[in-house]
Design a protein around this nucleic acid. Structure first.
Length: 269
DNA sequence: AGATGATCCTGTATGC
DNA sequence: TGCATACAGGATCATC
């Protein structure tokens, strides 16, 4: 499941390849028209000025005032070689080598669309996205402000992308385990000290996962087809029924905000 | 307005 | 072997 570290890994590969290239054509392939692929044709003839990222969204400003937005969803993979199936979008690029970009997305939760630059009204999550976890803006005080007064479970709040950008199911479970916070705990009820611990845990987990090129469990691949190496460093995600590496208690499983959640019943309160 | 649950989608795993 | 069912979870929308 691509979260911030996976998307950042992809961004770093795309940047030297795509920056400055002109899009010769942008075509929807095996997918019906719809908002997930809106205005793709507008990309034709525009130059890619840079390859940026906010949370799990790839943001590519184009030379005629538009912006190409890519979101990998659950199973989205960007590559420079044609995939065997489930090809949704194909870009033809200027230049001599690696002239095509392919977007494969088995489950079609991803998006690949063009908007007027900076106009994120059609993408409410991006429009209201919280601070980047690796930026100076993501402080303990900012996180505390964002959680204040909320009765929703901390897991649901973090997954909602408002308190912090780009943290999904895997890294939420990891961060809450590290900070010793029960995933069902009401966001507004967490002490200042604990919130600060959670902020540090998120920064550490996301930072280490970026270094490892993300977590490959099944679908996620880098642009070159490689895998991420953070899976072996996971301490909590998917560990239900196994012993907690910190205290030895058996990890429990719960469903919170429609997502499988594993946590240690002893050291997460 | 905040919180909650349903929905989309398809491959993989499991049970009978 | 075949069939049914459960599960995986990004974001968005409807409904309290």
């Amino acid at each position: 499941m691509p979260e911030l570290p996976e998307v950042e890994t992809v961004r770093r590969e795309l940047e030297p390849w795509l920056t400055g290239r002109c899009i010769r054509s942008a075509e929807r392939r095996d997918a019906p028209p719809g908002p997930k692929y809106a205005n793709l044709e507008r990309a034709t003839g525009q130059r890619i000025e840079s390859v940026g990222r906010r949370g799990k969204f790839l943001l590519l400003p184009l030379s005629a005032g538009d912006e190409l937005i890519e979101h990998l969803g659950m199973t989205g993979v960007i590559s420079s070689t044609p995939p065997p199936d489930h090809l949704r979008v194909e870009l033809s690029l200027s230049g001599r080598s690696k002239q095509r970009l392919y977007f494969r997305d088995v489950r079609r939760f991803g998006r690949f669309l063009v908007v007027p630059r900076g106009d994120y009204r059609s993408l409410p999550t991006l429009h209201h996205l919280g601070p980047e976890p690796m930026s100076d803006a993501f402080t303990a005080a900012a996180l505390a402000r964002s959680l204040a007064g909320s009765k929703a479970p901390i897991k649901a709040l973090i997954m909602g992308q408002r308190p912090v950008a780009g943290v999904g199911n895997i890294y939420t479970d990891e961060s809450l385990w590290r900070a010793g916070i029960h995933p069902k705990r009401a966001g507004g009820s967490i002490s200042k000290r604990r919130v600060a611990k959670l902020r540090d845990a998120i920064v550490e987990v996301i930072g280490a996962a970026i270094v490892a090129n993300g977590t490959t469990l099944s679908d996620y691949r880098t642009v070159a087809g490689g895998t991420g190496g953070y899976a072996e460093q996971l301490n909590a995600y998917g560990h239900a029924g196994r012993p907690c590496p910190r205290c030895g208690a058996t990890f429990k499983r719960a469903v919170i905000a429609q997502r499988g959640t594993s946590y240690c019943p002893r050291c997460q309160r």
